[in-house]
Measured scan of single mutants.
Amino acid sequence: MSGNGNAAATAEENSPKMRVIRVGTRKSQLARIQTDSVVATLKASYPGLQFEIIAMSTTGDKILDTALSKIGEKSLFTKELEHALEKNEVDLVVHSLKDLPTVLPPGFTIGAICKRENPHDAVVFHPKFVGKTLETLPEKSVVGTSSLRRAAQLQRKFPHLEFRSIRGNLNTRLRKLDEQQEFSAIILATAGLQRMGWHNRVGQILHPEECMYAVGQGALGVEVRAKDQDILDLVGVLHDPETLLRCIAERAFLRHLEGGCSVPVAVHTAMKDGQLYLTGGVWSLDGSDSIQETMQATIHVPAQHEDGPEDDPQLVGITARNIPRGPQLAAQNLGISLANLLLSKGAKNILDVARQLNDAH
């Protein structure tokens, strides 16, 4: 009898209710805020589980004197976190989706994509230029951005401005803007500013005609071990179906173009009346040469937790077992079709030249 009692006690200790789920994140304040929001949602869904947040620095956090596009290494903000995932030191990792490459290392998958916040870019102005827009900034004003995508589009749109690289986390960039006289304004992701509670610093939100956004911008991705079915089931509740389908289309477009950090590629997606609209573009580094096109596809946005595919093969690095396969494939095909259209119009040449120029500098 006593033996059975011990077995029952052991089973209770090993039951999922007692389990601590370890969540990996970057150390920056924004990353911690984003991770806290994901953990809060998981806690609400699984009140019996405990969650421990483990923060670590990544290569991208450490190399702050070089433009991201020049470092010449993929997975700048993800490699150390993936290493911890691989060694079973954490069970899942919360990322900004735009930091996750469209091809993940073997053994990993994006197990959830959370509801997207505003994906557009924002302009934050130096205190002396508050009330201005990019259009009304004085001639030769210097605007800071760490992104080739932003610089290429904005140089084309605002030729009277000069664009220079600015690195560091959000706090560091804002301090550089406010305390030094080098920059009249800087460009940042609206979602990051909003998550930090800095709505009052948003001086201008850039519309798609001015600057399309990065693939996955404004959404959070939760990376897990691809074979860890328990954790895949656990994080599945975080999937937002519309965000998922938009981001599958965007990531398929980028992957098929073979774009990345070192080339200016941008997108804009919208879901309306059962249609998914995808606009994508590529630019030369100075913005003088560009190709942009829009395509659409009829896609039914499923309700969360309709029964999805059981075999769960990944699409552009994403596993969404609780979302039907048909809409996911339709979104992926839309991204591939748009990429093929741009490639047929000469996108590869623009991107190759951009890559060579970026590598040469």
Rank of each mutant, 00 (worst) to 15 (best):
K98C: 06
T102F: 03
G111W: 02
K43F: 06
P313H: 06
V282Y: 03
K79W: 12
R156V: 12
L338K: 06
T59Q: 13
K157Q: 10
K74D: 05
R325E: 11
E162G: 08
V235K: 01
L76E: 05
D230A: 05
R225G: 02
E73S: 12
F163H: 11
N118S: 14
D65E: 15
S96C: 07
D240K: 10
G308F: 00
P208T: 08
G144S: 06
T109L: 05
G48D: 13
V39W: 06
G335V: 05
K272G: 02
P313F: 02
C247R: 03
V282M: 08
I323T: 08
I323V: 11
S147P: 00
F108M: 02
A191C: 04
Q275H: 14
N349V: 10
S69F: 08
D99M: 04
V90Q: 05
F51L: 11
N322E: 13
V235S: 02
D312E: 10
F163T: 14
G281L: 08
M295S: 04
G221F: 03
G192S: 13
L81Y: 03
E117K: 12
I323G: 04
A339T: 13
K157M: 12
S165H: 11
L238R: 02
A151H: 12
P302D: 12
M295A: 12
Q181T: 13
Q194I: 01
D311P: 09
L342V: 15
Y213T: 02
P313L: 10
V90W: 05
K348F: 11
I299F: 14
R225Y: 09
V143R: 03
Y213H: 14
L137M: 12
L334Y: 05
Q204H: 13
L97H: 00
N340D: 12
E209M: 05
D91L: 02
S290T: 02
V316A: 11
Q229A: 07
A354D: 15
P208E: 00
V237H: 00
Q181G: 11
L285W: 08
L276S: 03
L174D: 02
K79D: 11
Y46D: 11
L68A: 12
V93H: 13
L334Q: 01
P302K: 05
C114I: 13
Q181A: 07
I186W: 01
L42D: 01
Q217N: 00
K348V: 00
V142R: 12
D230C: 01
N200A: 12
T66G: 12
H207S: 12
A303Y: 06
P127Q: 14
L257R: 09
D352G: 01
N340W: 15
P106H: 13
E250V: 01
D359N: 08
P302F: 05
T279M: 05
S184G: 09
A297I: 00
H239S: 12
P264T: 15
G218A: 06
T243Y: 00
Y213P: 08
L177A: 05
L81V: 08
G197P: 05
G144I: 03
R195Q: 04
L351M: 14
Q229N: 14
D312V: 06
I205S: 06
P327C: 02
V93R: 11
L188I: 03
E223W: 01
S57A: 05
V124D: 01
L148M: 14
L64A: 15
C211W: 04
F125V: 09
R173A: 02
V224A: 06
N169A: 06
N169E: 06
L338T: 09
R164Y: 07
L334K: 02
S37E: 10
E223S: 03
H83I: 09
F125G: 02
H268N: 12
A330F: 07
G111L: 01
T145K: 02
D99F: 00
G346D: 03
L315F: 15
T145I: 04
